[in-house]
Structure formats: C-alpha cells, structure tokens
C-alpha cells in the first residue's frame, strides 16, 4: 500500500475498495480469490507444508498436483481450517482466514469436499443434499417454533433446488435412495452437487475422481466445466493426470511441501523438475 499509485494500480485499488464495501457483488471483486502465502505445517520432524505460496484467481480451475506425500491434502486442510498452520497466511477475498474455524471459512464462501466420500447414515440422498444450503432459518432452534412458516418456505425452496441440481447432475433417480447405498462414484457426484448448493465462491475438490469409473469421471469433469462456466472457481487435487491436464489451468505443482512450479498444463508437462519430482529424482 506504500507504493505511489500509478495509473494502473489506482483503478485496481479503487475496485478493491469497492469490493470491500459491497462484498455481495461479483463483478467488483478482486481477481484473486484465494491467496496462500508461506504456509507451513510440521508434524514432528516431517514438514508437510514448507512455505507453500500460490494464488487462485477468480474464474479459474486451478489444479494442485504433486507426488504422494507432497503435502496436497495437508494444504487443503490448512486452507479450509481443519489444520492450524504453524506459519503463513491464507486470505480469502482479501480477508485473513488463517487458523479460523472451518465453519467460518465455509461461511465466507470456501467449500471443500473430502477425498473419501463421507457417508450420511440414515439419510436419503435428497436429505443429505439438504444440508448443503447455507444460513437456513430452520437451523436455528427457536425459529422452528416462532417462525415455522419461514422455515417451511425455505425448506420448500431448498427442496426445489435439490431436485433441480440432481437433475442437472443426472442423478435425480437416486433422490430417495439411502445415501449409503449408492456407488462410490455416485457419492462423489452427490458431494459435488451438495457443495454447489452451498453456493461457494471457491470450491476445493480433493481427488474428485479417485476410484471412480471412467464414464462417471467424464461426467464429473463435464459437471465441473459446466459449473466453472457458471462462475464457480475451483481448486482441485487429482492424481489422474489426463483428467487434470484436460480440466485445469493453471496447475500448481507441489513437491515436499513447497511449490515447485506453476504454469499451464503444457508447461507442466514439459518441465523437467516436475518429471524428476514424480520419478523421485532431483531431490537436493
């Protein structure tokens, strides 16, 4: 902020200020949704995240790749508040969200999914979907009795949203199935659909197609593209190279807890350091 304003930065600054004043308006938001800076996490002697720094720009599908143990999931947990970082900062739309509770981060518009789909025992798929929407009046106990009408109205609206989004994901036939009785791939679709009901600004997907058959994986990729076109920003971890190369741009490569490089899929594919990291060489 101490720089003397040139013509370009002046307009940037003014849009940023406007964004702070009206956080509901997408068009005036800053270009960077998520800023990760020098993020560090140690588990005993193991440094799982070693001063990782990268940005996620609005409107991108940013990929996060790296060999096993590179710290991808750790970084996800640090960003989403499930782990507390030892050092570094995470900024969401310019707000410092480092180390705050996961639910607060989610309320600020960052929603994540998990590597292994979480099972909701005793619920049907559509019940499990109804957890997604944020700030439901029916989630406050006293309103169940003081304002049952508003609760019902919102529940009806949510129900319509659930039906619509299940149709869009082409899994509306599962709506009344027990949420635990569907295939792993279908669970991943349900997770993605539910995350969308939370209307996230940025969606963190942890291995969205791990263990999913190729047909469903393609379907998931189509859905992610479709949602991306509708304006959602994505950050995704994936081991399936062809999947991530075809979907994400830019791609951030992690190795041993820190960012090795960042670039387009083409650049990542031809970078020697990346090949070395994956083949286990070059570690000095």
């Amino acid at each position: 902020m101490s720089e003397s304003p040139t013509e370009g930065t002046a307009t940037d600054a003014s849009t940023e200020r406007a964004a702070e004043e009206t956080p509901g308006d997408d068009e005036e938001r800053s270009e960077i949704v998520l800023e990760v800076e020098n993020l560090r996490k140690e588990f005993g002697a193991l440094v799982a995240a070693d001063d990782a720094t990268f940005d996620v720009e609005r409107g991108t599908i940013t990929g996060l790749i790296g060999p096993n143990g590179a710290g991808k999931s750790t970084i996800f947990n640090l960003i989403s508040g499930f782990y507390e970082p030892d050092a570094g900062t995470v900024r969401l739309n310019g707000d410092d969200v480092t180390g705050i509770e996961p639910y607060k981060i989610a309320n600020k518009g960052l929603i994540r999914t998990f590597q292994t789909p979480r099972k909701l025992e005793g619920m049907t798929v559509r019940e499990a979907m109804l957890i997604g929407p944020q700030r439901q009046p029916g989630e406050s106990f006293h309103k169940l009795f003081t304002a049952p009408g508003a609760v019902g109205e919102r529940e009806r609206a949510n129900m319509a949203d659930v039906e619509r989004i299940l149709e869009e994901f082409e899994i509306d036939h599962l709506a009344r199935q027990p949420a635990t009785d569907i295939s792993g791939g279908q669970m991943k679709l349900v997770e993605l659909a539910r995350a969308m009901l939370a209307e996230p600004e940025i969606l963190l997907l942890d291995e969205p197609v791990a263990g999913v058959n190729p047909t469903l994986a393609n379907k998931l990729a189509d859905q992610i593209r479709r949602l991306h076109e509708q304006g959602t920003t994505f950050l995704l971890i994936e081991h399936d190279m062809s999947f991530i190369m075809s979907l994400a741009d830019p791609i951030v490569v992690l190795d041993q807890g820190s960012v090795l490089m960042e670039g387009t899929p083409g650049e990542v594919r031809t970078d020697e350091r990346v090949a070395d990291a994956y083949l286990g060489g070059g570690g000095v």
Partner: peptide
C-alpha cells in the same frame, strides 16, 4: 427440521458438517 438434520450430520460425520459451514 433442518436443525435436526445438522445434528444427524454431526452424528454421522462431524467434519462434513463443519466443511459445509455448520457451527
């Protein structure tokens, strides 16, 4: 109610409830 649904989510998987913005 949605309130009860959050409780049932917590019983099944508390992390999921947190990740979906529930306190």
């Amino acid at each position: 109610s949605p309130w009860g649904r959050v409780l049932r989510t917590i019983r099944a998987d508390e992390d999921l409830a947190k990740a979906l913005g529930k306190n």
